[in-house]
Design a protein around this nucleic acid. Structure first.
Lengths: 345, 345
DNA sequence: ACGCGACTTTGAAATGTTTCAGACGCCGTG
DNA sequence: CACGGCGTCTGAAACATTTCAAAGTCGCGT
């Protein structure tokens, strides 16, 4: 607490407490080996000087960092926040800090972030990559930093990964719509460069074929991004389809799209779900809060994050390690946007 | 790229390139002082060995960190993401990394994060604090780390701060409702320990009094948090008020509350805005995307973040520095939740 | 009185950079 | 030919910690 200029170091603390450097270090890292009396004296000195350990020096010497990093794909999508939350919880338990970066879908930003993370020698990297085959990931991993892919399964098992079964997710969404009697369904999503999108659509097509429905009645509306605005634009295109051919239901590759589509449709005077049933993907909090609560394929978002963190820690702990691809099972949450339910007024 | 075990250091690079340590360092930090030939040789060596600079060592010696930190108040609120985005942009320009943490409204988490940030000797801290008078903030600042308060004005001008005028925001929201002819209005928000909430409500009360409307017709519905769920609960309480006394409009302290209230009201069969007009605060993206697009008091979210980052950098740059309290002017965005507009079908 | 083990404390080395005063070579000038 | 200056490169010190072998200290049983 003294305003003597420079911020105090262990040396200052040692001097103030009348002990050696090593003892001060022991108080911080192995308190059990130092006698209660000295420990107390050192602690008082630290408090008086307002000592704060220099993490860079610690890390340099100890060789081990105390931080994990998560590189998010889209900061604007609450889904990733819930995942981050799960990671943070696990990090907290392991007494680590969590560094959150966001690539916002840009490979170059992602590369910059990864580069910096290597320089910081973080203990592990969790990432929802723009492209899971990016050479950066392989390189970072080769350097001995554990990498786990979140919400995507890694290329060729080169990393651990945690994801839900997106194909299955697509299946149950469309299956649900079919059960409600829909025989002309739109699937909306894009860009197809995103694996999540490809697989969800793939699941939709699979189940459609298995149900023996004609392929041309599953109408694909591509979008440029997974955003609310793109959802609205898809809605406009949908409205443009001649009534006889127009789908009576839509499966959106995520909730942001679904929300946009929902808003556009209602604004255009359609009733949901009577005129158009909608099911989304992710089950973000805003899905339930939409004016017509949105049916959605739920991912266990926090759980995803937590499991990913566990994997990264396990790999960081060393010992024998087999890369694992954890796959969670998605679950349909049916709400008013697909099923008419008696409402109590 | 050689798999020789340990990760290579400057020393290894120097050896490989046949130069001294200092030269390698110069290549990285002052390329102009080294001759093109040597520089090229060193660069090749770095590439071949796969050298990655150790940031801890750099920071330890150079004494300066290359990261900024933002401690968010609520990770679940998209508003703070837009702010973070603004900060990130500014950080990117200054070639710094941004460390994002979230306190989720808990003072203890906030303290833990701040402590770690001090240990890391970050270059500056941006924070939307649980409580701007927290001693931690003063301490961190006393240590010479610039602190700027975001979305809140700092206690007694001890720090820089960036915020919108929340009182004014409350005023224009209620003024707008009054203009639409409402004479019984609910204000919903809480907890009152949040300064944002107190001031927004204060603005509402001010303008109500100035309009000469009876105080008892401005009905306060307190909430425990600024969340969608609490908004719904407020909706239930609102519905419980006898029709003669029931407000015809509501001003919510943020958009999350407004969205919850909107959903609950529509679900209960009310028409918005005919039976209940709603105005929120923040103008998050989901506000416009709600089934009944939400009127809201817009804050220049990215701009807030950018300005805050600029302030922190300015203070970090040293030189004479006066703490400033930047205040932005909020702006009402009127949408369908308060005004009936002809729609085109 | 002595030796032994348990518990504490010490001091120096090591970590990977940056910085800076100086050394070196070379050229043009007086 | 000596000299100063310039451009380039070097070597050692410094940064704040952790770690670890070794040295002390103490009490106790013989």
């Amino acid at each position: 607490m003294v305003g003597n200029g420079r911020t105090p170091s262990v040396k200052d603390v040692a001097a103030a407490a009348g002990v050696s450097l090593g003892t001060v270090s022991n108080v911080m890292n192995r308190p059990e080996v130092v006698s209660p009396a000295t420990r107390e004296r050192v602690e008082r000195a630290m408090a008086e000087l307002g000592f704060v350990r220099n993490e860079s020096a610690r890390q340099l010497r100890a060789g081990t960092s105390r931080t994990l990093a998560y590189v998010m794909l889209d900061g604007g999508n609450p889904f990733f926040h819930d995942v981050a939350q799960g990671i943070e919880l696990a990090a907290e338990d392991a007494d680590l800090s969590l560094f959150i970066c966001t690539s916002n879908g840009r490979a170059d930003r992602e590369a910059v972030h990864l580069d910096r993370l290597m320089q910081q020698r973080v203990q592990g990297v969790l990432i929802t990559p723009v492209n899971p085959d990016a050479p950066h990931l392989a390189e970072i991993s080769r350097r001995g930093i554990p990498v786990v892919i979140v919400d995507r399964v890694g290329a060729g098992g080169a990393f651990c990964s945690v994801a839900v079964d997106d194909v299955l997710g697509g299946r149950i969404a469309v299956e649900h719509l079919a059960e409600q009697g829909h025989t002309r369904v739109a699937v909306v999503g894009g860009p197809e460069s995103l694996g999540q999108v490809r697989e969800r659509l793939e699941g939709a097509r699979q189940v459609w074929a298995e149900l023996g429905l004609p392929a041309e009645d599953l109408i694909y509306l591509p979008t440029e991004a997974l955003s609310v605005a793109e959802g609205r634009s898809a809605g406009e295109r949908l409205a443009g389809i001649p009534a006889r051919r127009r789908p009576t239901a839509a499966f959106c590759a995520n909730d942001l799209l679904a929300l946009g589509l929902l808003q556009q449709s209602i604004g255009a005077g359609l009733r949901v779900p009577e005129d158009l049933a909608i099911v989304g993907f992710d089950d973000i909090e805003f899905a339930a809060a939409a004016a017509v609560p949105l049916s959605s394929v739920r991912q266990p978002r926090q759980e995803l994050g937590r499991a990913a963190a566990q994997l990264v820690l396990e790999e960081a702990a060393g010992g024998r390690h087999e890369h694992q691809q954890l796959s969670f099972v998605p679950e349909l949450v049916a709400r008013a946007s697909t099923v008419l339910r008696p409402k109590v007024f």
